[in-house]
Structure formats: C-alpha cells, structure tokens
Nucleic acid binder design. Structure first.
Length: 845
RNA sequence: GCCGGUGUGGCGGAAUGGUAGACGCAGCGGACUCAAAAUCCGCCGUCCGCAAGGACAUGUCGGUUCGAGUCCGACCACCGGCACCA
C-alpha cells in the first residue's frame, strides 16, 4: 500500500503557505473580492468524511479564485453551543466549556493536515463570549425594532429533565433522555417575528438564481402562502363578548356546503366555555394532551365536542350551524376556527360522519348523494361554485375561489386575505449551554433589556449537571441583578437562545471577527455577500431561512448593508459520503456490524467468517460503515483523500467511499509525480510538441469549465485524459515541462500539496498557489482537420476526415462518394443531405 | 394526500438536439520478473459473425425532428421535502 502512496511532504507545503501568508484575507482596493464559505462544523471532536468533502469543495473554489486574481475570504469557525456538550457534562461530570474547547482543539488539529486555504486568523467559536456578547447586542437591537417579542406558547416539556424539548427529541411521546412522558405545557417564550417577513422571504426566492431550485422550492413550501377568505359566522346570541366566530378558508367556493363551525381547544371561545363548564374543560385538556410530533398527530383520532352554541350562515340568517370544539384545529394558523364542508373536504367528511353532521354537496357532480368519501373536484370538472347566490356562473379551481371571494366581498361578507404557514421562531431554550437572553425581569419595570455596556452577559462557570434542569435557573446568585432601568433588585432571564440563532449571522461576523460591535460597516460592506456558500441539503429550510431573516433584521438594525439582505449569492448543496455496511449475525440472529478495516475480501480478517454486504448508506457510527479521515490522511496523504472525494461522483450526489477507489486515486497521484520527475531537462530538441500543446490548451479549457460549473468529477476526468496524453507524448523537453507546469496548476485546487511539488520539479516560479490561472488559447482549441460522422437516416454508417474549413458543397460531394452511402442509395438520389459544419453529416434517402 | 427530483455497461458516472458509454473502478489478455508486487501495453454494452459488417441498446409506451439519453405527453420504479395548515 505504501508503495503506491505519493511521496509528498504535505506539512512542508502547508508551512510554506503559512510563511507566505497567502490565505490571510485583507481588504484591498485593487482586486475584486470573493467570499467562499462552507457551513461551519459542530465541534463533536472528530472530523468525518462529510467534512472532508464539504471543505475540499470550498477549497477548490477558494484556490481557483485566488489563482484567478480574486481577493479571497475563506474562513472557518465552530458552531459550538448545544446539547451534546451538556449531555457529555451530565455523563462524565466535566464542564461543557472544557468539553467543547477540547473538541475544537482536536478537530482543528485533524483539519489542518487537509491543507485547506483557510484564514485561521478569523477563527471563532459561537461559545466565545466575544461572539455571543455581540449576539446579545444584536438581540437588544432587534427587541428595540419589534423583531423580538414574548408570548405564551405550547411546548414539549420533559418533567424529569425539567426542560423544553424539540420535537425531534420526543420519541413516542417520551423524552429521549429521561424516558418520561412529555407534557404539552404553556410557557412564556421569546419569539423572533420572522412571519413579518413571510411575503418578502417568499418573493425574494425568485431572485436567488444561483441557488438550487430544490432548495428554493422547499423554502417556498415551508413559507406556504395561501389565498382565501376571512369572514365571520354570527352567533345566534353573543357569548363571552363575541358577536361571531371569525374563520379563514381557502375554499370559499364551498361555503354553501358548510355544515358546522369548529374552533381550536385553545380558541378564546373554548377557553371561556372551559371556565364555566367542567365537561368542556375535560375535553379540552384531553385534546391538548399528546405530543406535537408527527406520529402523534398521525395517530390522533379526530375528536369533537358540541358546545351547544349556534351560528347563522352569512347567506341565510335562517340557516343555523352548530359550533364544535375539535382537537385537530390549530390555534396558530388562520383564526383558530373553521367552517366544515364535509362534502368537499376529506377531513371534514370524517368528522361529520363520526358525529352525524350533514353532508351538503354544492357542486353538480351527478353523484352528489350517498358519498362514500369527500368529493374534491379535479381540475377538469366544471363546477358551479356557490349554489344559491352566484346565479349561472360556473368556475373551477383558483378561479372559483377568486370568484367566491369577489362575490362575498360584494355582499360585505368578509375579505380576501393572504396567509402564510410560516410561524414565528420560538428561540427560548431552558438550557445552560447557549447564549443567555440579555434581558432582566424587574418587579417594577417589567421586562427590561440589559444595557449594552454590561454585555456580554456571561454564562457562569461555576455549574454542575448532577441534577436536572437549567443550572442558570437554580444557581443561587447568577440571576440576581439590578434593573437596568430603575436600579432596584431584579432577576435575569435564565433561558438561553436556540443554537440556530448562533449560526444565523456567523457569516457576517467573519468579516470582522474581533470587532466590538456585531459587524463593522466597512468590512461588511466590502466582504458581503458570501459569493459561494456550500453545505448539506439538510439545512435547506431552517438554517438558510433563519439566515435570510437575520440578514434582513441586521439590515433593519443597521448592522448590514441593504445589499446583504440576501446574504448568500450562490448556494451549493453537496451530497453525502457513503460506505457499504458489513454485517454478521450473533447467535440470536441479531446483526453485528464491522468496521471496513476489519473486513478483507468479504470475510472478517480475524475469524475468516463471511460478512453480509449491505449496499452503501450514509456513514454512521452505529453501523460502523465509517472511515476515519485522520487514518486515511496518514495512510495516503490529504491529496489522495481530496482527489478521491471529488472524483467519483458529481458533487451534488452521494459519493461512495471505497478502498479500491482510494487506492486508484493514490496510484494516479504517484503517476503524476513520476511523469514530473521524468519530464527531463529544461532544454532540448523539440519533438511532436504541437499535439501536446493542443491537449494542454484543451485541458485548460475543460478543467476551467468543470470548476466553474461545479463539475469537479468531470474536471478530474479531463485531468486524467490530459495526463494520459502527456505520459505518452513524444514532445520535446521544453513542451513537456510546460505541460507539466500547467498540469500542476490545474490540479492545484484539488491536490494542492502535490501540485506544489510538481510545479517546483518542472521549474515553476514561486508557489503554484500564487501562480496566475492559465488561459486557453482559442486558436489551439481548433484542430486543423475534423472527422465528421456520416449518418444515413440518422444512423451512423461511416465517417469522413476533412479540413476544418472545407465548404459544405465539397463535404457533400465527398460524402456522396462514400461507399456506405452509395450502398444505401442503391443508385438513387438522396432526398436530402444535411451538413452541420464541424459536427455531422446526415444523408436522408 | 400535496409538491419536487432521478432512472445510461458488472459498478461510479461522461455526453451546447449531432459518433451514447469520456474518465475511473472491477474484469480479461500480454510485457517485464526466478516469482510476486509495482509499472507498462492491449481488450472490455448485449447478440449474430472467422472477418468485413450487421441487429439491438440510455426505466416503459407514444410523439416532435433529417437526427432524441437530451425536447413534449402518458405510465412504471426509486429517492427527497411538506402534511390535521382549514
């Protein structure tokens, strides 16, 4: 194995780059800037192949842009707050801070040997007080602008660990750590007013042309715009101060099919009833129980409670409908109340069937009676949209909705409104290892923001995790403080921020990482936006949407220029690194997994037992289908790992790590080194130089194209092809050395250490990292002669080689003399001859 | 259920509407070697054929075109996102 490993002293070149300071980003007036960023890692302590792939791609772009003469910013940091640190502290008794900073040191040490073009002087961790203090300042500015507020919210509460859990942390209705049944509890929580930007965040997606269409679509669905009618059903008698029940519907065309009105258990009306009738309270309590997880919702049975209240149909005062409380109605969408049209909505139909409510079809479907399930008209079904008040007008789909809205508005019943699914972002976490929310609760003044001069509000170090709950909350003195407004004794907020807040503005902080304000206008103005952002598709919605919101909020608070409200000009989402899974079975038939290095030729090295090979899947420690980048780099060198993760699949798709592929990459790099060593002296007689020079320019053109279009695998294929030509070339030494130097330059973004070595061997000046990217000579891309395939009726039959500028008529004459064509013509004349110059000839007979 | 994406040799994958399978892996044959490793040379979609050559072939079925992996329509399979959202 070691025999094929390319011998390049990678550390030596890393030191050379360091000495030359080539990756330190400084503002400069004379060069255009380019900001390339990969999504920063969580400091788990170990880098994995996914990191290698992600950062290698960013590095290719960064090094390519450096060679193109751009002033490149390519920073790295750590998304360092979060629960794993607390869990580690709970498990082993240390402090989250020590665990986190220890991991950062380890990961940095694992990352540096990859030879990334990172400006390490800008490194920070989100758990640095210098960072989260500025985040607190940002929070205060947002509070000032009304972009943050407090309200009651229903959360998953783990009564044993005494904390709020994210939906992902609730498994089968139980806390993932404690196993305790999760309660839905109402707490006062902080929210970012992201919904205020819903329309803008949606519309601006259209302008993000260099984002994957898939991500834009996912965000668009997530924001979820809908058009509908908001209107009121008047109560037959006023109740609890309300004259009617406000509902929102996207199907006003089914209004004449209304058979009941239903409200959420959290609706003010339900609350009022709950207060006076125990059976309502009991129902509502039951309806609120149960998790907020997807499975819980899936399994939940539709349940309702007839309140006895009645409302009138807006079109017919004599028509009365019952008012129910139903467990499936969400208080925080629309108005928290609906009208049900069982004839044209599946969910309403199920509810009506269960409780014996009438089903009233409004469309002339010809099968209105005896419906087995709700009939939802397809786009090709012509329907009369509202029986009874719209006369002879017939409409379908969105047109029917708009017509119904217009008809209702015309009668003074409700108005057309646009609603969004996107909800405000709850950011309060009852956890220790996060950014403290910088506000104070004062008995006299209420909620008061902390003064900026008191920032950062630091996490205290003196904490233990031997008891559940938030150590900030139970610490005897931490929360005690003076009210920033009146100076009287007050209590600090002990909740911390969701860690997604930390990652929503780090890209802006990189432009001025040591500043004593969140950003610095000059720096942010110069470096923003991120020209190319690279990361996993798993962040398509939350992180990227939150960042887009934050950029707007930072503009509104004066921390970013208007131009930066869309912070990422281009986004690329890369695929995962996968590996086969090797498994055997224990005596009980349970699967036992084995690491790749324990397996050779389909059997366990240790015992010779055959393993079952399960097709490639995402690398996962539990399945043991992982390879450790550190040992790969030790065995083969960083360049081999980089080359392989780029070469085998298109970057947006998954790539399967195989030992054979890694060996092949190493073999190729060793071959390049050999070719460079054999390139000969700097002088000598010319040979067949032109062919090599042409191939060289072709390679420059193709590789440049490949990198520009994120076709790294295609660029690498072209480099293989060029290397093959170079190896077999009969060119003289001067041309060969020139070709080797160009090969070094073209490989430098992918395999920077080897490229330096080869560059130096071929007499390149200085470091290849600082060499200007080569430019292909268009004249060298055109061959003197060109081989045209000859098709007969679209099938390839022969070919003809002609001078590149031969006229169409001459080509036609040559083609018609071709023996295959003559045979096909059988003495007749062709119907048509199509000559595409430089491409193809097609004879139609 | 709603919304998207993908489908090409044994495998990963190339192909501005113009020679399908570049490049790599695996495999086969050969050179070098006492031998092996490494390296180098060659073959490598399927079928028929000694060969020349021919037929078939980019999930399936149709269409547009002189010409379709590529464009259009329907279908099938797999993957992903969202989902009591009124």
């Amino acid at each position: 194995m070691s025999r094929i490993t390319p011998h390049v002293d990678e550390a030596r070149w890393q030191e050379a780059w360091e000495r030359a300071g080539v990756f330190a980003a400084r503002r400069s007036a004379d060069r255009p800037k380019y900001y390339v960023l990969e999504m920063f890692p969580y400091p788990s302590g170990r880098i994995h192949m996914g990191h290698v792939r992600n950062y290698t791609m960013g590095d290719v772009i960064a090094r390519y842009k450096i060679a193109q003469g751009f002033n490149v910013l390519h920073p790295m940091g750590w998304d360092a707050f979060g629960m794993p640190a607390e869990n580690a502290a709970m498990a082993s008794g240390g402090h989250p801070k020590d665990w986190t900073y220890g991991n950062i040191a380890d990961m940095r040490a694992q990352m540096k040997p990859l030879g990334l073009s990172i400006d390490w002087s800008r490194e920070f961790a989100t758990c640095d007080p210098e960072y989260y203090g500025q985040q607190q300042a940002l929070f205060i500015d947002m509070l000032d602008k009304g972009l943050v507020y407090r309200r009651n919210a229903v959360v998953n509460w783990d009564p044993v660990d005494m904390t709020v859990l994210a939906n992902e942390q609730v498994i089968d209705g139980r806390g993932w750590r404690s196993g305790a049944e999760v309660e839905r509890r109402e707490l006062v929580q902080w929210f970012f007013r992201i919904s205020a930007y819903a329309g803008e965040l949606l519309e601006a997606l259209d302008g993000l042309e260099d984002w994957p269409a898939k991500v834009r679509l996912m965000q668009s669905n997530w924001i979820g715009r809908s058009r509908g009618l908001q209107m009121s059903f008047p109560l037959t008698a006023p109740f609890a101060g309300a004259e009617g029940i406000e509902v929102y519907t996207t199907r006003p065309d089914t209004l004449m099919g209304a058979s009941f009105v239903a409200v959420s258990p959290d609706h003010p009306l339900a609350r009022a009833l709950e207060a006076e009738r125990p059976e309502v309270a009991e129902f509502c309590a039951g309806a609120r129980k149960g998790g907020t997880t997807e499975e819980a919702i899936e399994k939940a049975e539709k349940r309702g409670f007839d309140t006895g209240l009645r409302v009138r149909h807006p079109f017919d005062p004599a028509w009365e409908l019952p008012v129910w409380i139903a467990n499936f109605i969400l208080m925080d969408y629309g108005t928290g109340a609906i009208f049900g049209c069982p004839a044209h909505d599946q969910r309403d139909f199920e509810f009506a069937t269960k409780y014996g409510l009438p089903v009233i079809p409004v469309f002339d479907t010809g099968e209105a009676a005896g419906l087995a399930e709700a009939f939802v008209p397809g786009k090709d079904v012509v329907v009369r949209y509202v029986r009874g008040f719209a006369g002879a007008e017939w409409q379908t789909g969105a047109a029917a909705v708009e017509a119904a809205i217009a008809a209702c508005e015309g009668r003074g019943i409700g108005q057309g409104v646009t609603k969004y699914r996107l909800r405000d972002w709850g950011l309060s976490r009852q956890r220790y290892w996060g950014c403290p929310i910088p506000v104070v609760h004062c008995p006299a003044c209420g909620v008061v923001p902390e003064r900026k001069e008191n920032l950062p509000i630091r996490l205290l170090d003196d904490v233990t995790f031997d008891v559940p709950g938030n150590p900030l909350d139970r610490h005897p003195t931490w929360a005690r403080c003076a009210c920033p407004a009146c100076g009287e004794p007050a209590r600090r907020e002990t909740d911390t921020m969701d860690t997604f807040v930390d990652s929503s503005w780090y890209f802006a902080r990189f432009t001025a990482p040591r500043a004593t304000t969140p950003t610095v206008a000059e720096e942010a103005g110069y470096w923003m936006n991120v020209d190319q952002y690279i990361g996993g598709i798993e962040h398509a919605i939350l992180h990227l949407l939150y960042s887009r919101f934050f950029a707007r909020a930072m503009h509104a608070t004066g921390h970013l220029p208007a131009r930066a409200i869309e912070p990422f000009d281009a986004l690329f989402t890369q695929g995962m690194v996968t590996h086969e899974i090797y498994q055997t079975r224990d005596a009980a038939g349970r699967p036992v997994y084995h690491f790749p290095e324990e397996v050779e030729n389909g059997v366990l090295k240790a015992t010779g037992e055959a393993v079952e090979v399960i097709p490639s899947a995402k690398m996962s420690k539990s399945k043991k289908n992982v390879v450790d980048p550190v040992s790969i780099v030790e065995t083969y060198g960083a360049d081999t790992a980089r080359w392989f993760v780029l070469s085998d699949s298109p970057p947006e798709r998954d790539v399967e790590w195989t030992a054979a592929g890694a060996e092949a990459a190493a073999r190729h790099l060793a071959r390049v080194l050999r070719i460079a060593a054999e390139a000969g002296p700097a002088e000598g007689a010319p040979g067949a130089d032109l062919a090599l020079t042409r191939a060289m320019h072709r390679a420059i053109h193709d590789v440049t194209q490949g990198i520009e279009s994120f076709g790294f695998n295609a660029a690498i294929a072209k480099l293989y092809a060029f290397t093959n030509v170079l190896q077999k070339s009969a060119a003289g030494p001067v041309a060969r050395r020139a070709a080797v130097r160009v090969l070094a330059q073209l490989m430098a973004p992918m395999t920077p250490h080897l490229a330096e070595e080869v560059w130096a061997m071929a007499g390149g000046e200085g470091l290849v990292v600082s060499a200007r990217w080569p430019v292909a000579d268009p004249a060298m891309l055109v061959e003197e002669t060109v081989t045209l395939p000859i098709q007969v009726n679209g099938k390839r039959r022969s070919e003809v080689t002609v001078a590149k500028d031969l006229g169409t008529a001459d080509i036609e004459a040559l083609v018609l003399a071709d023996e295959h064509v003559l045979r096909a013509l059988e003495g007749g004349r062709p119907k048509k001859v199509i000559v595409v110059p430089g491409r193809i000839v097609n004879v139609v007979v």
